[in-house]
Design a protein around this nucleic acid. Structure first.
Length: 213
DNA sequence: ATTTTCAAT
């Protein structure tokens, strides 16, 4: 029973190694994705599922997650509801790398066809986002425009992940050196990346109030 | 100053 539970949880070292938000994450040649799936069942009740996965050769973690989505979210597409409505789900995931351009495109298309799925993405590090005009940077903007909340993981997010996805064996999450500084730097960088989208949003608001033609 | 990246070997 314990060993079965352990297999669902991430080993401490694995979590720390893969999620460390250092400037040069040498050797992080794999990506972990920890997820929480919630479904609204009634006014107050929620169903809940969680787990983690890792990319496989030839398949990025995000697309692997998409392939599991049908099993994780029964009734997401069909008409499982007694009034023939699709069920609404919300997914939050914590990924060690931000999504690449290709995954972002697939996700964006998928989400536009599935408005009953809400997605929030937290990332530990930004994947190839140093150059403005990089397709990965554009991918993040596309996701943002598709209504996805994209954020950089902060201390409280690591703390939450440790409590939720890691076999912590009652040990508390201990921040590595530079966690906060790195978070601030990455968060600013992501804000700069998403700035054009925020501006678009503002224009939409102004337009709504007739302040702009 | 420079270092790294869902590997390839």
């Amino acid at each position: 029973m314990i060993s079965k539970l352990d297999s669902v949880l991430l080993a401490q070292k694995k979590f720390i190694y893969n999620y460390k938000n250092m400037r040069w994450a040498k050797g992080r040649n794999e990506t972990y994705l920890c997820f929480v799936v919630k479904r609204r069942l009634g006014p107050d009740s929620l169903s809940f599922d969680f787990g983690h996965l890792r990319n496989r050769t030839g398949c990025h973690a995000e697309l692997l997650f998409l392939s599991y989505l049908g099993a994780l979210c029964p009734g997401l597409w069909g008409c499982a509801d007694d009034r023939n409505r699709r069920l609404s789900y919300s997914v939050t995931w914590f990924c060690s790398w931000s999504p690449c351009a290709n995954c972002a495109t697939t996700l964006t298309r998928f989400l536009r066809q599935t408005p009953n799925l809400r997605l929030r993405i937290f990332v530990s590090r930004l994947y190839f986002c140093d150059l403005e005009g990089s397709p990965h940077v554009e991918g993040l903007r596309d996701l943002r425009r598709a209504g996805v909340q994209v954020k950089v993981m902060s201390y409280k997010d690591y703390f939450y992940c440790w409590q939720t996805f890691v076999a912590h064996r009652l040990s508390r999450f201990k921040a590595w050196e530079g966690l906060h500084t790195n978070y601030v730097r990455l968060s600013r960088k992501l804000n700069r990346i998403l700035q054009p989208c925020e501006t678009e949003d503002l224009r939409d608001v102004f337009r709504l109030f007739g302040l702009l033609t």
